[in-house]
Design a protein around this nucleic acid. Structure first.
Lengths: 147, 147
DNA sequence: CTTGACCTTCCCATCATTGGAAAGATTATC
DNA sequence: GATAATCTTTCCAATGATGGGAAGGTCAAG
């Protein structure tokens, strides 16, 4: 299996497959005489695992750990669960930050008549020097990273 | 006012103030003879505006537009509201993606006893070739970008 | 006049991902 | 068998928003 087929079979782009190899998330693929990477069904299985973990928002670092745990048949399920729970906590943190932003914006938008007239509580809310906007959550939880 | 004071007064780091100047989000600051940037109260006002918008999750591109609308006293409030509503929609999209990830992970974790034994539904869920994990939302909504 | 706290510019790193260029390999078509 | 299309390879660069740090200039207090 060439890298293109492996990509289609796993849902991971060829670019990312090479990248994952480079950063040692996966072991280097075997090569043909012409240096083409070849993939076995087992490799595809690993790539799918990675794709699932990625879709659930795990970072490359976390995936490294998860892959190691996956391969280690004697590891304790508690080790896996811990990572999952930590990730859940992180997701909930981000969800809270997004919810706070949404709430503030909706509040501002609901008071904006949204017609031809220029006065607008939204932009006024941004500009006010008073502390009405609760951006504490965003700041505290590093919301800038929630792209 | 030097850049350090401006940073403290606005809550925007000196690094970011210089960056915002470089990418032309803000106009270049006046300079002293020794090339030190100086900031007026008006500049601080603008920086605070930026900080608020940033805390609400607006991108630099969106902030460029918002700043232009802020300065344009004759623009329609509808123009501002549209941007806000679009951003709200984007936030809700991300919230949905995060919620889907959280739900799946919680489901997997709840079935994992989390003790010394090796069998673990979480990691099995990642590895399964069947389609149990609903990563459709993550895929559809570009969840990889929700860092 | 020295010390420390500022400021300047410049370059690099992050994270996951995509894009492209240049060159070589393979496959399909004529 | 030649040619063209479609792979593949490596390498380099960009994204967005931010931080880190080096090397050197400036300023105020002691």
């Amino acid at each position: 299996m060439n890298i293109g087929e492996a990509s289609k079979a796993s849902g991971v782009s060829t670019k990312m497959i090479r990248y994952y190899e480079q950063i040692k998330l996966i072991t280097p693929a075997l090569r043909t005489e012409a240096s083409y990477r070849t993939y076995t069904d087992n490799d595809i299985h690993t790539l799918r695992f990675i794709r699932r973990a990625r879709d659930l928002g795990f970072s490359v670092e976390q995936m490294k750990t998860l892959l190691a745990l996956w391969r280690d048949r004697s590891r304790a399920s508690a080790d896996v669960k811990l990572i999952a729970l930590e990730h859940i906590a992180e997701l909930e943190r981000k969800a809270a930050a997004i919810a706070a932003m949404t709430k503030t914006l909706k509040h501002l938008a609901s008071n904006c008549h949204g017609d031809d007239r220029p006065d607008c509580p939204i932009i006024d809310g941004f500009a006010e020097t008073l502390g009405e906007i609760d951006h504490g959550i965003g700041a505290k939880f590093g919301l800038a990273s929630v792209k």
